[in-house]
Amino acid sequence: MDTRTVAVIDYGAGNLRSVRSALCSLGYNALIVDSARGAAEAQAMILPGVGAAADTMHNLVRSGLAQTVIDWIAAGRPFLGICMGMQILFEYSDEGGGQKCLGVFPGRVVKLPTSHKVPHMGWNQVHYRRDSALFDGIPNDSNFYFIHSYVVEPEDDEMIKATTEYSAQFCSVINRGAVVAAQFHPEKSGAVGMRFYENFLSLAAEGRLRHGIST
């Protein structure tokens, strides 16, 4: 296994370049994975997310990548989901009339209240709910870049590591075992976003993610 290689799942949604650039600038190699094979040698896996839930699930299932992701997570290997890549980890999304998702975790994905403008677009504070080594070197309430209309509601409150306020508090970072996911885009969040990637990748390389993150 190559500790500097990170599998980036490509399910045809487009913008992987930013994630790849971010990884490269941190000294990692991005291995773009677009079929069920090919991720094995990587140290960690990133599932970037843009687009709609239905398209994402359709493309993941059709390409066989849905099973790749499920198997990877089941094996306790380091995994990072971003935005839509966070949402589809749950059982069901209300987006587009309803979409069954990967069901890695119990919980659902619901639309943001429309008392504010939706999509929630821009820089907003990530407030720590629990200590985590994922946040090393990043001050509490730092601004990260968000662009989304739906949010996750995990059944297990323990996995919620940070929240963000927009109309109401929503879950912006989760971690359970080796699975980490964020509603914001670290690759678009400047220095703090890069640090978030760096923390995740270091924890993955040190094997500290397999049994959950020490706090």
Partner: peptide
């Protein structure tokens, strides 16, 4: 755009 996307990490 490619060169810029490689150099800056904001939207």
């Amino acid at each position: 755009v490619e060169r810029v996307a490689d150099a800056v990490f904001i939207p």
